[in-house]
Each structure stands twice: as C-alpha cells, then as structure tokens.
Design a protein around this nucleic acid. Structure first.
Lengths: 337, 337
DNA sequence: TAAAGTTACTTAATCGATTAAGTAACTTTA
DNA sequence: TAAAGTTACTTAATCGATTAAGTAACTTTA
C-alpha cells in the first residue's frame, strides 16, 4: 500500500539507508543519539519493515507454517486443537512470528507441504491436527526444516504431547476411588493417542486389581456422538452392565448422554460417565461432565517455545519430546458407589 | 532451505534468467519450444519461485490476511466460522492465495491490523469472526486495502452475509406450519446478526397473525449452554408456557436440553425446540435437532471469490453485499400440534 | 531491395531491506 | 609524535525474482 521505506527515512534524516537500518536494528556501530532520533523519525512516519525484502535478504521470514487439517474430528472445530493453536499463536507472536496456513496446493500447482513451506520461506512448521501417516507429512518430517508435532513424536523431531497414559490412568483412579469396579471404556479412532489411553486404562485397571471383561472395552470414534450412542446401547444391553462408562471425548459423549436418556437411565443415579478433553462443553452440561482436562494452553505454548528455539538456535538446539500432564475435572456424572 | 533459483535453471538451460522467468510465466516473447524445455528443466530441478523475491518485485504477495478472533463464541471452535474459513481457504488456494493469521502485535511491537497487513504485504484481508466495533477493524475497513467481511457490511466494502432475516423467518414459518402458535425465542448477543434475526422473528410472527407476549423473547448468549439453561428455566416457569422454544444456536441448545430434562420435560412430547446454524452436533442428538442450516460453504466460497476479484481487478471491481440463503433442517424436535 | 516490422532473445535496472568492506575524523598508545 | 585503534558513519554488493529497454537475426512490405 502506502508503505514507508528505509529510503524515505534516510532522506528525512539526512543519513544513508545503512545507518537507518542499523539504528532500527540496534546495531553496535552507530551513535546512540542519532540512532534514537532516527528511531523517533521512523516511528513518526509510521515505518514498518517490508517483510518480503527482509525475508529475501536475511533468508528468515519470521513466518511459521501451520499444517492444519480442517477435518471435523481433528480440526479447527475441535476445542482442544483450537486452544492449542491459540496459545501457540500467542507465544509465537510474542517471539515475532506470524502463522501461515500451509495447504497441499496453490492455484493449479500441486505441492507437498514441504514444497509449499519452502515457497513461502517458512522458518519452521507447526504440525497440528494431522494424520501422521500422510506421505506429505513424512516428507516434511524427514526434511531439515525445524518443526514440532503435537501428540505424536517422530524420530529426530521435537514434539509436545498430552500425557495420555497417565491422564487416562488418573481418570480411572478417580473413578475407582469413588467405588466403581465395573468400568467400561469406549476408545476413539486407533491413532497413537488412543493406543496410549488404552494402555493407561489396562495398566491402571491391572494395578487396581480390576479384571475388565473384554466386552467392556469398545471401539468408538472421536468427536462422533453417533458411534458413542451405538456403543452405549451395546454396553447397556450386557447382562452384567458396567457402573461407569468412559467416553472417548467430551463431545462424543453427547451421543451417549442422549442414548442413556432414551433408554431411561439417569446420570449419575443409574450410570456414571466420564468424558475426556475438558472442553467448555463439559461445564455447559447439567450435571457438569466429569472429565479429564488436557492442558491445551501449556501444550501450545511449549510447542511454540520449542519451535522458536529450534529456528533461532539451530546449533544449541536439541530435540525434545515434552509430555504435558493434565487434571481431572470433577463434575457430577460419577456417583459414589 | 535448499531452494532452486532462476539462476540455476538459467545456467542449466544456457539462457538468461529473464528468459527462464518468461518461460515460467508464459510470457509472449519467447519461443514455444524453448519455453517448454525450460519448464521441463525447472520442474525436474524442483523449482518453486521464491515468494519473498516475487512479492518484493511485483508488490503482490499472493497472500491474504485473516483477522480471526480465537474467542470461544465466534472463533475457531465454532463450526459455522470454521466451515466458512475452510471453504474460503479452498477457494483462495485455487486462485493461488495463501492465508496468514493477522494479529494485533508482533514481538514487542504493537501493531494495528492494518499495519500488520502492510508489513506482511497482504494483498487483501478476510475479516472473519470479528467484533466489528473494534477500532482496529474500523481502521482496516477505512483503508484502501481490499477486504471482505462476513455477516456485517461496512460502507464501501464487500461483504457476504447469511440471510438472517429470511432464515429466521423460514424457521418460524416451519414451526408455525406444524401448528405452533406460542413460540418463544432466546436470542443471542446483541450483534448485527441478532438484530436481523429478531427482526425476522417479529416480522414473520406479525405476518402469521401471532401476537407474541414479550416475555417469550429472552436475551441469551451465543455458544453458551449456561445462559440457554437459565432462559429455559425462566420460560418454562411462565404461567402460559410456550409450545416451542427457539434457541440462539445449536450449541447453546445443549444447555436448554439439559435443563428441560432436569425439569422433567420430554422433547418433543412436552416441548418443541429448534436450534440455529446446522452444525454437525445437531445430527448427533437424538432426536435430531430441528434447526436452520446456514450455508457456510457457500458463504466462504463467495467471500473468497469477491476478495480475489477485488484484488485482481481493482478497476472493474464493484463492492457487493451478497446474501446467502440457507435451509431448514427438519429434525425430530418440533412436534406437530 | 531498402525500410519497416517481427521474433526471440539478453542486458540492466529495480523492488526494500541487510551487511561486509571502505573511510574520515578523532583518540589512545608506546 | 607517529602508529595503531576506535567511532560513526557511507558505499556498494547482494538476496531472487520481474520487466522495460535494447539488439541481432530474420521476415515482410512497398
């Protein structure tokens, strides 16, 4: 648009563009007084550096690419991922980075995520809400570009994950502490996260001396009320019914809630239930849904910190897999037995 | 990273960089055969233009800024906005534009949306999910930068809106057609959209000869189950109860649903209800929620088309305010009276 | 057939920043 | 006091593209 350039400031100040650049970048070989006055002039003229020129020269765009699936289950609509993105953005922004959505094509040209990232000179990539077996993600992860993934760790790449094994364990222990011994678990799509939650579930039940009939553990789908409803029907038709059903996530529990109502079971009088995620919906329900809150804010923030240091200190930097714990949110859907 | 440049292709082909550039851009003054061979070489070398260099020279970044509130009610988590963004992105991408999230600051520097957009050389701005009275939005809208807003039209700017008056009207007529005469309406936050829905509600009730007691029309909050629960309690405690409650949106209806259950009212046997938006949740409920589906796909696509033509044909371009209709989704929550 | 036009290139300038190398004025050191 | 060092600048090259202007070879026109 009407952007002010270094040259205009240089003319206004009667110095060379080099001097202006140095003043604005707090370089060492410039007089303190003159530098200050140049900065004042620049500010008064409404100067902002041209990101393209700067990126071209420095080979550093101050831009982070986000590969974000817009899928219903793992995309923008999911509060867990939305919150991770929000806190990531806040932290990245504080470090001076903007976020660009990286897709698989541009105009008529089909590009891989990596090609697209190179085209846009992204300094790093935030791999969020993704199908990790996607070849284009594999290509990205195998490249030299700094990146961080969420809830899945690739070899030689930084990752931040929710502590799925222990989170699940914590929720099971909470339910157990209220006297439940017949605990059913509807797990979500068989992704890495789910494997860990199943692991946490069985491990903890074992530690607590509970033997769980195998028809108490049912496959479901994340963010899908319909499958939760079907799974609930199945569980409630067993001769030896569970006293508590653990749902794959808060949102999909809606399906179970409806189904239980339709079947004439009251929550928590006739059957106890738990969710997973700790999204705002859980507090909108009466009674509040007992769930496990994953600390999405901490996850996003940590991911941004890891990525920024990977970008800015490529030498010092060491890959890390950070595991973020969460907390049980005690609602009113688990009744003391 | 390891990006291939024009120069390398020029050397490989034994021509000047000018010729390579022309070949890749399908310029007229170049031999068809040589152009084709250059393009083949470029492709085989994995060439993608450097976006920064191109933006610097052409003053055209092929980048669209998105001012996206991450607020829970009007942000990423809301399926309506997420779907608009998704279809916008798809269409923009087809035209060769990427999306960058524009925030209000960068590093230690506080910037307005406009300053940030200029800094990033955005060709245009997609103003989505925003508080339109925000001074930084006003500044943006008053500038010369091409932009398009959603569900709110500024003077001299393109906008795409859901047809709120007629949508509301359509839903009221549907409810009326099933015999309901005592229709209550919980409206959302008092933003422009809400004003139109209230207008549509009263207008249509008037046309249908219904006189609505003023305590049937209650203020609520979008995306907030708690307020819907409270409003429901209020409505159901009236001496002359409504036969149908229209909720501000599908999500907030969850609060009403819970409250009705708690009060011992069955849906739709004892009370009929409707939502608004037509998000996937409405089909996850039993019975399916009767709601009004706003055509978020069409809205996003149209917005992208308007913005791209505003960017690419600034002369020919005329501001437009496009109104997109939607459809009633017949669920099972409105009982024939 | 000479002038004018066309084709298919190359040369060189340019976008707006950054930064290594150069330099004039002044200060410190031996 | 002469050499060396420091300070505070400027000059000029550069990042990787695009494009106006230039030009040689060939073709068409009058």
């Amino acid at each position: 648009m009407l952007a002010v350039t270094l040259k205009q400031i240089a003319e206004a100040c009667n110095v060379s563009t080099a001097t202006v650049s140095k003043a604005l970048n707090y370089a060492s070989d410039i007089g303190a007084e003159k530098a200050e006055s140049i900065r004042r002039t620049a500010k008064s003229m409404g100067y902002f550096p041209n990101a393209a020129a700067r990126a071209l020269k420095t080979n550093h765009s101050r831009n982070i690419g986000v590969t974000f699936s817009l899928d219903r289950a793992i995309g923008l609509t999911h509060e867990y991922f939305a919150q991770i993105l929000e806190s990531f953005q806040l932290e990245a922004e504080t470090s001076g980075y903007d976020l660009t959505l990286i897709s698989r094509s541009l105009g008529k040209t089909v590009m891989s995520y990596l090609e697209h990232s190179i085209y846009r000179n992204c300094d790093g990539i935030f791999v969020l809400a993704q199908k990790f077996e996607d070849p284009s993600i594999i290509e990205l992860v195998s490249s030299k570009i700094p990146l961080v993934t969420i809830d899945y760790a690739f070899n030689g790449c930084s990752a931040v994950s929710s502590d799925n094994v222990n989170n699940m364990s914590g929720l099971v222990r909470y339910v157990h502490s209220l006297g439940h011994r017949k605990i059913a678990f509807i797990y979500g799509d068989k992704i890495d996260v789910t494997t860990r939650r199943i692991e946490g579930f069985y491990k903890t039940c074992g530690e607590l001396g509970l033997s769980i009939p195998h028809d108490y553990v049912v496959e479901g789908v994340y963010h899908c009320p319909e499958t939760s409803a079907a799974a609930t029907r199945k569980l409630m038709s067993l001769t030896d019914r569970p006293t508590c059903i653990m749902y794959p996530d808060d949102y999909s529990y809606i399906g179970g809630m409806n189904e239980l109502d339709r079947l004439g079971f009251s929550i928590p009088e006739d059957i106890s239930v738990t969710g997973f995620d700790g999204i705002s919906l859980s507090k909108g329900l009466r009674p509040n849904l007992t769930t496990f809150h994953q600390d999405s804010g901490a996850i996003g923030k940590k991911a941004a910190q890891l990525l920024v240091s990977a970008i800015e200190q490529p030498d010092k930097y060491k890959f890390e897999h950070v595991i973020i714990p969460g907390t049980v949110w005690e609602g009113g859907t688990v009744k003391k037995q």
